[in-house]
């Protein structure tokens, strides 16, 4: 049991929607989700939009509160971070890279300052150390000193995502959540960033929780894989076994939907008309 970094038990999230009509309707976004994550491994959560994969990731990160269930990190229950102190402690354990490389960096903050700010908030070292560490982190994600003095708008999408990764790594988290982190990038840039992530995992003691709808990306980055549909886990196992010999119909349908040469899209019959 000690090898588990993260244990999620019966996680549940209910959103209340349509408050204007007086009666609120319940939308179950995450329903009885349990899984665990080994240290230094990489787990992918896949599913189409609305399957609850991003909500699950956001609950673990602490950006949403869970309706039910529990999360343990390193065997200790993960409380919802309500006090500034607990938020600071949690920041050193879990970090997240967001989907949108354009919105996830402050448009008025230079790249170097962005990382420096976090280092100053969490580490008790002088300015010179922070400067060196910033450069080290930038180098780690394949950027160099020139980029430290740039504003985000001067960088490409791939470069911005590298900055976001460097920012997340600056706090030396145990768990890095990547929420569709390469979905907004070009395919060639995607490959670069994925390779970078693989290299980082080899050199650091870090665990990935990778949320994606792109099965090709998942195959490249993750050892294990969870398939979610409408808030529930439908299938889980090692990435090869799930993607090469899927047991569930839903997983087969997802695999069928990957565009490939000579492929014609087929309409799904079980989908309700309103979707």
């Amino acid at each position: 049991m000690t090898t588990h970094l993260l244990d999620v038990h019966h996680l549940r999230k209910v959103f209340h929607v349509g408050r204007a009509k007086g009666r609120s309707e319940e939308l179950v976004a995450v329903d009885d989700v349990s899984f665990s994550l080994e240290r230094n491994s990489s787990l992918a959560v896949v599913g189409e939009s609305g399957s609850g994969k991003t909500t699950t990731a956001r609950i673990i990160a602490g950006l949403e509160s869970a309706t039910g269930g529990s999360i343990e990190l390193d065997g200790k229950p993960l409380a919802s971070p309500d006090s500034p102190r607990s938020r600071r402690l949690k920041a050193r354990e879990i970090q997240m890279v967001f989907q949108d490389p354009f919105g996830s960096l402050d448009p008025r903050q230079k790249v170097g300052a962005c990382i420096d700010e976090l280092l100053a908030a969490h580490f008790d070292h002088d300015k010179a150390w922070r400067r060196d560490r910033t450069m080290e982190l930038l180098a780690q994600v394949g950027l160099d000193e020139r980029h430290a003095d740039e504003l985000p708008r001067r960088l490409s999408g791939g470069q911005r995502q590298r900055v976001a990764i460097a920012r997340a790594l600056s706090l030396e988290p145990k768990l890095l959540i990547l929420d569709e982190a390469v979905s907004a990038l070009d395919v060639s840039v995607q490959a670069q960033v994925l390779n970078l992530l693989s290299d980082i995992r080899e050199s650091l003691d870090i665990t990935y929780l990778f949320v994606s709808h792109d099965l090709a990306v998942v195959r490249q980055i993750s050892d294990h894989c969870i398939v979610m549909d409408r808030g529930r886990i439908v299938e889980m196992g090692s990435t090869e076994s799930v993607l090469d010999s899927p047991a569930e119909d839903y997983t087969k349908q997802l695999l069928d939907a990957i565009p490939r040469p000579g492929w014609t899209p087929s309409r799904r019959r079980d989908l309700p008309a309103s979707v």
Binding site: A61, G62, L63, P84, R87, R88, L89, K90, A91, R92, I94, Q95, M96, F98, Q99, D100, G103, S104, L105, D106, P107, E117, L118, A121, H122, A164, R167, L171
Partner: peptide
């Protein structure tokens, strides 16, 4: 509502 504000929150910066 911008993700960069969420990133700052996750980084434990004060409100």
């Amino acid at each position: 509502r911008m993700p960069y504000v969420e990133a700052c929150e996750l980084a434990g910066l004060s409100a």
